[in-house]
Amino acid sequence: MNRDKLLQLMRENKVAVLSALVILLFVLAAVFAPFLTPYDPKEMDILHRLSGPDAAHLLGTDEGGRDILTRMLYGARVSLLAGVLPTLMSMLLGTALGLLSGFAGGVVDEIIMRIADVMLAFPSTLLAMLIVYTIGGGLTGVFLTLALVNWAGVARVVRAETLRLRGSVFVTAARSIGVPQTRIALRHILPGCIPTMIVLFTLGVPSAILTESSLSFLGLGIQPPATSWGLMINQGRQYLYTAPWCSFAPCVAIMLIVLAFNFLGDGLRDALDPHLESK
């Protein structure tokens, strides 16, 4: 893709570009959190607990007198990481299994796809609850859970892509000149799946962020003293009527980031998906 085409796509997809900027802003805020705030996210200040937004604390303070904006900046690290890392893991797992399933066919395909069917049959929050119960909460537990919840959908899509590409002329050509199977899978079919995978990734991140926040909201996910937006909402819920800012600020942050990723995903699908381009 040359530069003019890219610029044209960006002009056509203003919402997606804006979303990318919002995401970038969130990421920068999370990375540079210590430089953006004078407060410590864990230090209590009981004298100023549950005070409303003012000049000293732009978003108010929580039940321990901790600055909410500061905690949101640090919480963004966990929430964003919970969106990205597990989604990468589930992409890796799902792609490997999907490719294998579509390429090998037969019994291997049957086994992998039946396991995927079973995973996809669960209501996703319940599946996450079940897995987190089994492997334990906390940062590692939640990340692993999110990765295990989402691989099946990826596997199914990648398998379908693999089957489509396997029947294409360039794969037949490669096969006819004696290219080995693994090389066909990795060098001819996998690259063809990449546009789909980028879209899947972009749409997988917000769903992982939402699942993390749901788990933490229920008290099953991230455990204090670590924090994430979902956990902040959970902790602030007791003070919903006296200090609503405790919960609402992280709620808005989750909504914004989820919205931004969804818009970006839609935009990328329009730009990358060859099936839709013909329309």
Binding site: F217, L240, Y241, P244, S247, F248, C251, V252, V258
Partner: peptide, 22 residues
């Protein structure tokens, strides 16, 4: 519709509780 699709359920629930209930 977009609000409905993008707001996490706990957010919708708490906003409703706060506004119409409290």
């Amino acid at each position: 519709s977009l609000m409905g699709v993008s707001m996490p359920v706990f957010m919708t629930a708490m906003v409703l509780q706060f506004f119409f209930g409290y």
